[in-house]
């Protein structure tokens, strides 16, 4: 066989980029293999810069607008159904399982798309304080979130790892290891959606090479780890996180209102009521 293989790139700041190191690594799927970027420390630094910019553009969109952007993503996915199906089959899923995974993924997006303009009504409330004050608690997105995604060869898992943070308005650096091919494929649909550049950055690599840099980076406000990690790594992450009180979440929920809790910050505003 002598077919020309596609080389995937990282998707950062709305652009496809090679690792500045020029390095790649090989992902062996059950029925095929691919070369994907081996993200370097500098790539992470660049991604944070891009994510910060993306954050300011994404979080300021109205919730209604966010809903539409996310919904459009589901349309893109449906449109590329067969491509994903093939990829998942290459990864070892049966055709039926692959199809089921894509349907679930679409449903996941639909759920989160519809959540973007509702969650604030479920998490915020007026507080019945004593005295002549209007007092309300509402939520804001945390900022730049690094997600270490599950290794499942599953489009749905991938989306369940990126969407909770994204839906509330965070910018996400979505980091992938063994599921990188699917993730980087998804980047193409992200690129064609209306998501502002930098709001969702998709990268591939070996987390163990970057654990220090990511957990030490002060402008990454939170890390969500959606896979099992060993105690040694957990310790490194949390110890480094403590330098800037970075929020660390190990295997947080992926569906339901509770999936959003890690990525929101409660702001309470008081004002007197008088003449």
């Amino acid at each position: 066989m002598n077919e020309i293989k596609k080389t995937y790139k990282n998707y950062v700041g709305g652009k496809y980029v090679r690792s500045e190191s020029g390095k790649t690594f090989r992902i062996d799927l059950k029925n095929d293999f691919y070369e994907v970027p081996l993200t370097s420390r500098k790539d992470i630094r660049d991604a944070v810069v891009a994510a910060k910019k993306g954050y300011s553009n994404w979080q300021k969109l109205s919730p209604y607008n966010k809903t539409q952007v996310l919904y459009r993503l589901s349309e893109m996915l449906e449109g590329n159904f067969e491509t994903y199906q093939q990829l998942l089959q290459d990864a070892g899923l049966t055709k039926a399982k692959a199809s089921e995974d894509i349907h679930k993924a679409v449903d996941t997006i639909i759920w989160y798309a519809g959540m973007a303009d509702k969650w604030e009504q479920m998490t915020g409330n007026l507080n019945p304080v004593a005295g002549d004050f209007f007092n309300i608690s509402h939520q804001e997105s945390l900022g730049v979130v690094f997600t270490l995604n599950s290794n499942n060869q599953s489009l749905n898992s991938l989306l369940l790892n990126m969407l909770p943070a994204l839906t509330v308005g965070c910018a996400v650096i979505s980091f992938n290891e063994e599921n990188s091919v699917i993730a980087l494929k998804l980047a193409e649909d992200i690129n064609n959606s209306d998501l502002p550049g930098g709001a969702l950055n998709i990268m591939s690599g070996k987390f163990e090479l970057l654990i220090e840099d990511v957990s030490n980076h002060v402008e990454i406000t939170a890390m969500a780890i959606y896979k099992e990690i060993n105690n040694h790594d957990k310790k490194i992450i949390k110890e480094n996180a403590s330098k800037s009180l970075k929020r660390i979440f190990i295997n947080p929920p992926t569906m339901g209102l509770e999936a959003l809790f890690p990525f929101i910050e409660t702001k309470t505003v008081w004002h007197p009521k008088g003449r």
């Binding site: 005295g131 002549d132 004050f133 007197p272 009521k273 008088g274 003449r275």
Partner: peptide, 12 residues
């Protein structure tokens, strides 16, 4: 007297 401002709750 232009732009006089008093906050009732703070005053009380």
């Amino acid at each position: 007297v232009d732009n006089l401002r008093v906050d009732e709750v703070g005053l009380k």
